[in-house]
C-alpha cells in the first residue's frame, strides 16, 4: 500500500514535470535538438533541474542499504560500454529526432488521446519487445 502510494506520487510528479518543463511538446524537443538551426536551449534547464536533485540524491545515498519501503537499493550492475549500448542510443536518438518524443513524454501525452501519439507508444512497446527477444 505504502509502496503503491510512493509510486503514484513519483509518477504524478514525473508526468507533471515533463508537461511543465515542455518535454511533452515535440516541437520544443526538436527545437532543442536543432543545434544548427533555431536552437531553443530551454530543455537544457529541464535536464539541469533534474540533475540538481538527482546528483546529490545518489551521492548522499551511497552508504544507504534500504529504501523507505524496506526494499534494497539496487543500482544497475551493468558497467560495460559496448556496441549494444552505443547502437541502441544511436537508434533511439534517430527516433527521438524524427518525432520529438522519448518514452516518458510519449506516455505522459497519452492523456491527449491523440491517435498518432497512441500509435507512437504502441510502436514503442513493440520495439521494446523486439529488443527484449533479440537480447534473450
Amino acid at each position: 500500500m505504502k509502496q503503491t502510494m510512493l509510486v503514484a506520487v513519483a509518477g504524478a510528479l514525473f508526468g507533471a514535470g515533463l508537461a511543465l518543463g515542455g518535454m511533452t511538446n515535440p516541437a520544443k524537443v526538436v527545437g532543442f535538438l536543432d543545434l544548427f538551426g533555431a536552437w531553443d536551449p530551454s530543455l537544457a534547464f529541464v535536464m539541469g533541474g533534474a540533475l540538481l536533485v538527482t546528483v546529490p540524491t545518489f551521492f548522499f545515498s551511497k552508504t544507504r542499504k534500504l529504501a523507505w519501503s524496506g526494499s534494497t537499493l539496487t543500482e544497475p550492475s551493468a558497467r560495460q560500454i559496448d556496441s549494444r549500448l552505443v547502437s541502441g542510443a544511436v537508434l533511439f536518438g534517430i527516433g527521438w529526432g524524427i518525432y520529438g518524443l522519448c518514452p516518458g513524454p510519449a506516455v505522459a501525452n497519452l492523456w491527449t488521446l491523440n491517435p498518432e501519439f497512441i500509435a507512437f507508444v504502441v510502436s514503442m512497446v513493440v520495439g521494446l519487445l523486439v529488443a527484449r527477444k533479440a537480447s534473450a
Binding site: A10, L13, G21, V46, G49, A50, T57, A67, S69
Partner: peptide, 24 residues
C-alpha cells in the same frame, strides 16, 4: 518553468530511489 519541471522530474527520481530502491 523548464527548471521547475526538471526539479519535479528529479524529485520523482528521488522518490523512486530512496522510497523504493528503483531507478526511474
Amino acid at each position: 518553468l523548464s527548471l521547475a519541471g526538471g526539479v519535479l522530474i528529479g524529485i520523482a527520481a528521488l522518490v523512486m530511489w530512496l522510497g523504493l530502491g528503483r531507478i526511474m
